[in-house]
């Protein structure tokens, strides 16, 4: 118990005094996972709309693959991305291994299936005659897409929350492709792992609290918007 209390006290001291190292790690987590979520949204919504609206052979298989992808183990993603980005690998010349960009790529691959799956469900819940009605009102294909996404905006918030949650909380892939380099690729999750391995539980707890608070705040804001929207 002593360990936990010490940790929590230390955590608040770090948060209170504004430890520069801790804040830069937090900011990096936010940037890397935020970018990954943004990319995952672009990819996931595009593929999700395609799967929700188009009928083509192999569509069921594609949806099954997406659903499988929603539970993709981060270490596997990390391994595959690491192999591709490895100096002697196919994308080695880009020099991305052990950079934040590599982490963004890995987290995007983890979050994209989640966003895709949520998008398919959100768009699938709209009335089937809505699209013909929008076309009949004079919408072009792009206008139609923009309008249905707005219609599905409430369930799409869930896609953002799920995508960001998965990206910011994974550790396996970030370790493998980022390398946990201090000041460069160290993020909240990898910093927690390192501290815990060294037996430095107080900073580990402090970083964990910050991580939880971050996820909580993001969800609080998104849920707030979602609830206000659904009431209006």
């Amino acid at each position: 118990m002593e360990l936990i209390w010490d940790g929590i006290r230390e955590a608040f001291r770090i948060i209170g005094t504004g430890d520069r190292e801790v804040w830069s790690i937090t900011l990096r987590s936010l940037l890397v996972s935020g970018s990954a979520t943004l990319l995952a949204l672009i990819i996931g919504i595009s593929i999700g709309a395609l799967l929700a609206f188009r009928r083509f052979p192999g569509r069921n298989l594609a949806v099954t693959l997406v659903n499988t992808g929603m539970g993709l183990p981060p270490v596997v993603v990390g391994l595959v991305v690491a192999i591709f980005l490895w100096r002697s690998g196919p994308l080695g010349p880009l020099g991305l291994i052990y950079t934040p960009a590599a982490m963004v790529i890995a987290q995007t691959i983890i979050a994209a299936p989640l966003v895709t799956g949520f998008t398919v469900a959100a768009l699938g819940s709209l009335p089937s005659r809505l699209r013909p009605q929008l076309y009949a009102l004079g919408a072009s294909r792009l206008q139609m897409l923009w309008l249905v996404l707005q219609e599905a905006r409430l369930p799409l918030f869930a896609a953002i929350m799920a995508g960001f949650g998965a990206a910011v909380s994974e550790v396996g892939a970030s370790l493998m492709v980022g390398g946990n380099l201090a000041g460069e690729t160290r993020v909240l999750t990898t910093a927690v792992v390192l501290a815990a391995q060294r037996g430095e539980f107080a900073p580990a707890i402090a970083l964990s609290i910050i991580l939880l608070a971050l996820v909580f705040l993001i969800n609080l804001v998104l849920t707030g918007v979602q609830q206000r929207e659904s009431r209006s």
Partner: peptide, 24 residues
């Protein structure tokens, strides 16, 4: 213009719904 059996109004104000085709 077309009107179907279901009203298929969008999740926005009635005035904005009526203005939809014009803004498109």
């Amino acid at each position: 213009a077309a009107v179907f059996q279901e009203s298929l109004l969008l999740d926005r104000s009635v005035a904005a719904n009526i203005a939809l085709g014009l803004s498109l």
